[in-house]
Design a protein around this nucleic acid. Structure first.
Length: 436
DNA sequence: TCTGGGGTCCTAGGACCC
DNA sequence: TCTGGGGTCCTAGGACCC
């Protein structure tokens, strides 16, 4: 029987690295990237980590420090990061087609076919090639299960002399790695389980791996048991080359500032709904129900906290955004209460089914086919001319297409993006600037 | 003034059925 | 007063991931 071998390739401080590719003078300097609405820190360069800036720190709490230490601050630019992510994945695909795109900055690769003595050199080649072709620095961890590959990857980043590549082949190498890994840093062990395990004197991945299966199953469910077995070297999770179809699709955003007017919230919700429906059709699915949720500020002590949601079951599954829009707006109107300051609205499309399997409702519109063609046309035009090229009146007159727009020219629900970089790789005008 | 967004899986417990 | 047993389905909530 062939033993399995997985590599985990993880981009170092991915969002920061994307910004640095086009601003190389920022290498060696502290850089952070903020979440949507410039809320919290979600990516940090090593120099920023050295300043003790923690993941998830609200930006307003570190503004002063950023100024003092000349930290370069970016709003998140997902168009850029998504494009860079595709470049990294395409590069990795040159090494093996057995590739799982696990997240925007991580890929698992199947390296079972290699001889043990070839693995380390192969890992170095992967790292070098990605950096040369995309400009993004990566770390590579290799082991016989996904969970152990994660462990290896963490240490590849941390260990001096590892140089960003670590292979766990022998029992001794694996044991040493597990002893050096805190239990809370194991993939699948979150805050709750980590705290509980610490209380039981289980501090490292090595301690965790020694626990009895029965206890782990009882207290950490089968997902915990899988983690345990994978730490022991028994693979429980395969490579997922084809991304499985999503079961829910959600689009939501905080507003640029708290809102009190229904019409403003309707503009935001209808824009989210169109986005969400576009994602739905891209996956080739129809939604059987939709949920709209509306939130007041969960941090405000003075306001009566309010998070409400309403769900609508549809007569038959649909991907028609006109229909989804109608239902979303009517759910919002039922929920809305005057006099509250709202901070966020969102839509979730649930119980998705493949469009090809949707039962035709004999009593519904005769013009279903016409509607399908209309949606297809909308998708094509938006893809070609940008998402803002075709809108409904309810979405409001102002759009986000000019990303550097002054605050007062934006609709009140639109995100703050005070530190946005250019879409170097995808925006036509940017490409022209680069060519000049 | 200022605290992200988008997912998955699992389990317990209630409702309901025979 | 006593008040079976086993199965399924659904949902809310918890925990986790990046």
């Amino acid at each position: 029987m062939e033993t399995t071998r997985f590599a985990l390739v993880d981009c170092n401080s991915f969002y920061v690295s994307c910004e640095r590719v086009f601003r190389p003078e920022l290498n060696g300097r502290p850089v952070v990237v903020l979440s949507n609405n410039d809320g919290c820190v979600i990516a940090r360069s090593n120099e920023a980590k050295a300043l003790d800036i923690k993941m998830g720190t609200p930006y307003f709490q570190m503004k002063e420090l950023a100024k003092q230490e000349r930290v370069e601050v970016f709003s998140s630019n997902y168009e850029l990061y998504g494009d860079m992510s595709r470049r990294v994945a395409n590069t990795l695909a040159q090494f093996t087609p057995n590739l799982e795109i696990y997240s925007i900055d991580e890929c698992f690769m199947d390296l079972s076919h290699l001889k043990p003595e070839e693995v380390a050199e192969y890992g170095k080649q992967i790292k070098k090639t990605v950096e040369r072709w995309t400009g993004i620095p990566v770390s590579v961890g290799v082991a016989c299960t996904k969970t152990l590959a994660k462990v290896a990857n963490r240490l590849a980043k941390k260990r001096v002399g590892a140089d960003g590549v670590l292979v766990l082949e022998s029992k001794q190498e694996t044991e040493e790695a597990l002893r050096q890994t805190e239990v809370g840093d194991v993939w699948g062990i979150g805050r709750q389980h980590a705290r509980r395990l610490q209380q039981l004197d289980v501090h490292t991945a090595w301690d965790l791996q020694k626990l009895p299966e029965g206890w782990v199953k009882k207290h950490m469910a089968v997902t915990g048991l899988r983690t345990l077995l994978e730490l022991r070297g028994k693979p429980c999770q395969e490579l997922e080359i084809e991304a499985p179809a999503r079961k829910n699709i959600c689009t939501s955003r905080s507003f640029g500032r708290p809102l009190t007017q229904l019409t403003d919230i309707e503009e935001a919700l209808s824009t989210h709904t169109v986005r969400c429906a576009t994602k739905l059709r891209k996956q080739g699915s129809c939604a059987s129900s939709l949920t709209v949720f509306l939130m007041t500020n969960r941090f405000a002590v003075t306001e009566h906290n309010f998070c409400n949601s309403r769900t609508k079951q549809l007569a038959s599954p649909t991907s028609n955004e006109l229909e989804l829009l109608r239902h979303a707006i009517s759910l919002l109107r039922v929920m809305f209460r005057a006099g509250k300051r709202y901070v966020k609205v969102g839509i979730i499309l649930n119980d998705l089914v493949p469009a090809s399997e949707v039962q035709l409702d004999l009593f519904s519109h005769q013009n279903d086919e016409k509607q399908t063609k209309l949606m297809h046309t909308l998708d094509t035009l938006r893809q070609r001319f940008g998402h803002h090229s075709l809108k409904y009146a309810v979405q409001g007159a102002i759009d986000e297409s000019n990303r550097h727009k002054e605050e007062q020219q934006k609709a009140p629900w639109m995100l703050r993006k005070d530190h946005i970089s250019s879409c170097y790789t995808t925006a036509v005008e940017e490409l022209l600037v680069i060519r000049k």
